[in-house]
Design a protein around this nucleic acid. Structure first.
Lengths: 235, 235
DNA sequence: TTAACCAATCTGGTAAACCAGTTTAATGTC
DNA sequence: GACATTAAACTGGTTTACCAGATTGGTTAA
């Protein structure tokens, strides 16, 4: 088991090492925004690793919007200068796994915003989608089954209805980790879920009626138990 | 130029297609949390593409925490059930490029939180780092040079000082796109930056003195122009 | 001199072969 | 028949080879 973990860690360490070397190269050559990086083959040779490894590192930096690969042409640095690039890569390399408390804290922040925006901006189509998610959740709970997934999907539907693509993306990024931790710590084993039905329904109604402030207050109540629970248990 | 874009789009389309097919497979086989996906070779053959393509798709899903690859063992679905997985992949596939307004809206939300947390939790070491970032920014402005990068690095330092790894990660994700859009729309060409020095300095002092509410108010002021500017220009 | 064209070269993307652990199942022993 | 052993098959990771489009530099025709 520990060998597996070590191997996995090694892989990440290797990729981070390459990312670091790419950063050094950009610094050393003072690559300006839009300039071209050496080809994958060159970097591969220069760093003594295979193209796959280089490509993985580039893909990671591409995800953060620091590089952009164009087929049959090259890999280019984004429209941000050496300083920002350097600082950001350093930060990315030092990123740590988010702890449960951070996740919950962030989720609450994001959702108190998405629910307000949803109440303001939701379209009829999004409202239907919300209703479907709500019904799926309710049905699951009434069957006495675990409904964590349907719960989170309803919240994701709210994020989508917020009309803010950025917030929607961020919610998608943190949600799986939230669910995983819920499962790990058995946060949702108790029968609070019946209360959850009413709370969800109320939030839905508020969004439907475009009651911005009320929707936020309802969400706050909805999160109160969770917030308290997590801080008591984990802090 | 448009051919380049098309090629790029095709690549993304291909990867998304594979992701979609993986989702279908998981649905069809009703893979429970922790269960193993078919090997990359099997999927490669099943979908009629190479392992590289499969691996890229898996890597994307790994980033969102939906799958996990373990060397010499297999790829496993995360600790979330079919329903959540299905819903999330659907959402991921339909993700759209964030617009500038969404980015700004999100940034303001995140930073009004990070600055408060930083004022509460910052360590002495983080304070030093903040000071360095502030000085770098000030120096650049006084030289009359463009200081967008140093500006954002200061804000990232605040995010790091918030002690919330999750918020820090999210800030890192949206920052490059913010900078890119700043450059594209020439938001920061005017000499507002001299005002920026004072505002940054004030925020730093508030964090230093652990004045939570004040730090938030100062950040609000700092963002007021930007918020207004963006909405006026882009909306 | 200039502009158009063409072929050699270079690019990222894709596919196929290879590697080192892991898993599994068959085989041999007690 | 139960268990230990061992070898073959299977895994994700890595390396190498190949592809088609883009770039580039020189050559040629106007």
């Amino acid at each position: 088991m520990k060998i597996e973990a070590l191997t996995k860690t090694d892989n990440i360490a290797l990729r981070n090492d390459i990312i670091s070397k790419i950063r050094n190269h950009i610094n050393h050559k003072n690559l300006e925004p839009g300039e071209k990086l050496p080809s994958e083959r060159m970097l591969s040779e220069k760093f003594g690793v295979s193209r796959s490894t280089i490509r993985e590192a580039i893909q990671t930096l591409e995800f953060y919007g620091l590089l952009e690969s164009i087929p049959q042409s090259g890999t280019f640095v984004a429209q941000l200068g050496v300083t920002a690039l350097n600082g950001m890569i350093t930060e990315i390399l030092s990123l740590e796994e988010p702890d449960f408390k951070s996740l919950v804290e962030t989720r609450i922040l994001l959702e108190l915003k998405t629910v307000r925006l949803a109440a303001q901006r939701r379209t009829e189509e999004q409202l239907i989608h919300l209703k479907q998610a709500l019904d799926a959740y309710t049905e699951k709970v009434l069957l006495g089954e675990d409904a964590v997934q349907e719960d989170l999907l309803f919240h994701l539907a709210i994020a989508k209805a917020s009309g803010n693509s950025s917030l929607n993306t961020l919610m998608l990024i943190i949600t799986p980790e939230i669910i995983t931790n819920f499962a790990k710590y058995h946060v949702c084993d108790d029968d609070q879920t019946f209360v959850g039905i009413e709370e969800h329904k109320a939030i839905y109604e508020a969004i439907k009626d475009r009651e911005v402030q009320k929707s936020k207050e309802l969400m706050k109540v909805h999160f109160k138990n969770l917030y308290k629970y997590c801080y008591n248990v984990d802090l």
